[in-house]
Amino acid sequence: MADLLQFVVAGLAQGGAYALIAIGFVSIFAVSGVINLAQGEFAALAGLCAISAAGAGLPLLPALLVAVAVVAAVAIAIERLAIRPVRRMTTLTSIILTLGVSTALKAVMLLIWGPQGHTLRAFPGSDLTVAGVSIRAQELWILAACALVGGAVWWFYERTLHGKALRACSEQPVAARLIGISLTKASLVSFGIAGVTGAVAGVVTSPIYSSSWEIGLTLGLKGFVAATLGGLLSVRGAILGGILLGVLENLVAGYVATGLRDAVAFVVLIAILLARPGGLVKHTEARV
């Protein structure tokens, strides 16, 4: 029983990280139909930036802020330099394009930080044990960041006029333009948001899972699976999907075999797509 709880707790924390990445996918896809495969690289980059900033003597909080700001700027630059110039953007094109971006980013990180993994120093707070289950302070930080950032993005897209207007761009681009929503601005904002959520995921997880140039790929894939679990258009769905995937992975790793951890996401993806292509969260049916 204690084992089970322990796995679930670890899974919740990991799921929180997946959820943050997944929110980034949703943020961009819901606005422009672009699938951004560089989403995982945002996290890797943020982690490494924070480590360097902290290593340069900055206190933890400013180091984190610097990292998040850098990544958000990178995300915006990507939108400007790579996404916007493409005239006929389809989901397929976006996948190829962002794969190129992700590859380049990965290699830049390798050049700057080298092949080894680095770890950011832990956030303040002491680990605790509840009913035989040890909970690391960092895990609580991850969940808190997920709740805070996830909540904010959800609130923005679902509750504010601005956010709803952005989402309208994907469904009715022409109508959106007619009522004065700028598609280019919408896309820019969505990339900014994705940069921030990815960066937050990267910095809060770095103390436990460490950061390196190559973590972005698997992290990104898992974030995508989480987003797909939630139907790719729903922030709430992405959070739930992330948490679910994280817990599932840890249960499989704990009870079956550690090596299978990375296969879980892939199997879950196929299973979900077969059973419920629309994701786990119910959407109102769209008109064809």
């Binding site: 790579a82 110039p85 493409v86 005239r87 006929r88 094109t93 190829i96 394009l97 794969l99 190129g100 971006v101 992700s102 590859t103 380049a104 980013l105 990965k106 290699a107 830049v108 390798l110 050049l111």
Partner: peptide, 19 residues
């Protein structure tokens, strides 16, 4: 692996400039 940079950039450039 650094040639990945080259690959990545070439890929982006082609999609953008020479679809």
């Amino acid at each position: 692996e650094v040639q990945l940079v080259g690959f990545g950039i070439v890929l982006v450039l082609i999609v953008v400039l020479l679809p």
